[in-house]
Amino acid sequence: MLKTQDLGYWYQDKTQPLFQGINLTFEPGKSYAILGHSGTGKTTFLSLIAGLDKPKEGDILLGDRSLKQIGLTNYRRHDVAIVFQAYNLFTYMSPMNNLLTAMAITEAEHAGDRAYAKQILNDLGIGDDLIDRNVQHLSGGQQQRVAIARTMCCDAQLVVADEPTGNLDEDNTKAVIDQFQRIAHEQNKCVIIVTHEPDVAAQCDHQYRLENKQFTQLA
């Protein structure tokens, strides 16, 4: 589904790349964890496959089309959904409006369908009493679940998450990872999670470690 071809990235000095010559393939229906210490470049890698930044060298292919050909804005709108550590919901909206807004922007199949959005929120444990409340009045775990619901209501086949459990307790962490697994296995989407927590990574189908500018597959 998603392929990286000799992918490389550096900030200022080409001679000191974060990573170089990366060739990875990510398949639909599977979850991937990218492990690594702070500063190794795993989040930068995620920003490249999420279409938030352009690679310095090499290419990223969705199917057989390069992201350059697709266009990053188009790619982000139709092909990829992102979950952030800080949730990054629209703070002036309710969970329902967050989902409806995301569906409208991404021109999702169910755009404007409140029942569909409500069903997803309910499935993720956001009850009817919470769906029209301002998201700032929800707990961290609930907000993260709304963020995951936002990715689920859109039609993107690729879901990328940057430290999605970083701000959550153990129970919420487990619930969130379970949701990502369901997205991968039940919705047949490709889920890529960047994390520094081995326990979280262990729950994913495949794990890669970014170390010494190279990716190593762990399992």
Binding site: I82, N88, I105, T106
Partner: peptide
Amino acid sequence: RFEIGVLLSLGEA
């Protein structure tokens, strides 16, 4: 900024 960032990440023009 964050709201704009999220909108851009969703592919908003």
